[in-house]
Nucleic acid binder design. Sequence first.
DNA 1: GGAATAAAGTTTGATATCAAACTATATAGT
DNA 2: ACTATATAGTTTGATATCAAACTTTATTCC
Lengths: 150, 150
Amino acid sequence: MPQKPDDPALFALFNEIGIINQLATTLFERVMPHDLTVAQFSLLNHLSRREDPQAPLKLANAFQVSKGTMSSTIGRLESKGFVEVTPNPKDGRGKFVGITETGLAARNDAVAALGPDLAWLSDETTSHDISGLTQQLATIRKLLDARRDS
Amino acid sequence: MPQKPDDPALFALFNEIGIINQLATTLFERVMPHDLTVAQFSLLNHLSRREDPQAPLKLANAFQVSKGTMSSTIGRLESKGFVEVTPNPKDGRGKFVGITETGLAARNDAVAALGPDLAWLSDETTSHDISGLTQQLATIRKLLDARRDS
DNA sequence: GGAATAAAGTTTGATATCAAACTATATAGT
DNA sequence: ACTATATAGTTTGATATCAAACTTTATTCC
């Protein structure tokens, strides 16, 4: 039973992280076209960068979400016609997810729509060392990630 | 149509923030008792620090969530008997939310259960300037917050 | 005072997310 | 081969979250 039970510094850090996550998500979702969510856009953006279709499980690992979550996001993008899911001919259990022409266009629309907000943020944060900040966070993320598997 | 459409640095930052948020949330929820979620614990913890009951709207603002979200979280804590909701005698629309004895005990249980993980994190991050990191993030949070209202 | 407006809470419908259960296919072990 | 186990995806049930619609009570403004 800790005498000094809560670490205010860590609580404050996670609090800021949680709020930023929420604010950025809603800010971006307000401007993105095609009713794209951040989860959907991120997946679309990821697929737009690699020509070869990817297995759902690999995508789930890349985004650190459960396979159930990835299954759901893929399904929604599929309904919109933005991705195409094909069976893995070598493995009856497996599938491949690839972006469609429509999906690529939607991704480009979204990138364009996000432009102003990102440019504004970029301007406002020129004095910050964003890369340095990101690296510090990456260190903490790796800690949490290692702890998860333990 | 931007030639350099995405700002990799900013995307990377928000990506880390999103993943940390998710990892920390699931890590904490795995150890907390009474089926407490982070949202529920945070509210309970907040209420444990002030003796006087708070209005739901005030709580929603403090946590930067919508009143609908706060309404839902309060309802769940009320079902568990951890908070008590009373009408505002001065204003028929208003309510007040206060923590119960049971709620305070649950909050203390949760703090104790979180102890080991927080201690571990604290140890692992001694070389990091957590406060400085938090302040940098707070600056960005304020930017996003201001943008939201514009 | 009565009508219009505002404010506090709740409800609804949608998405994201997890864990856990489930289905189907593949691989291992004997 | 046959059984047991492992792997890929899907489904289910729960919570969090938002925006928007809705209800109830206050306040404002002629």
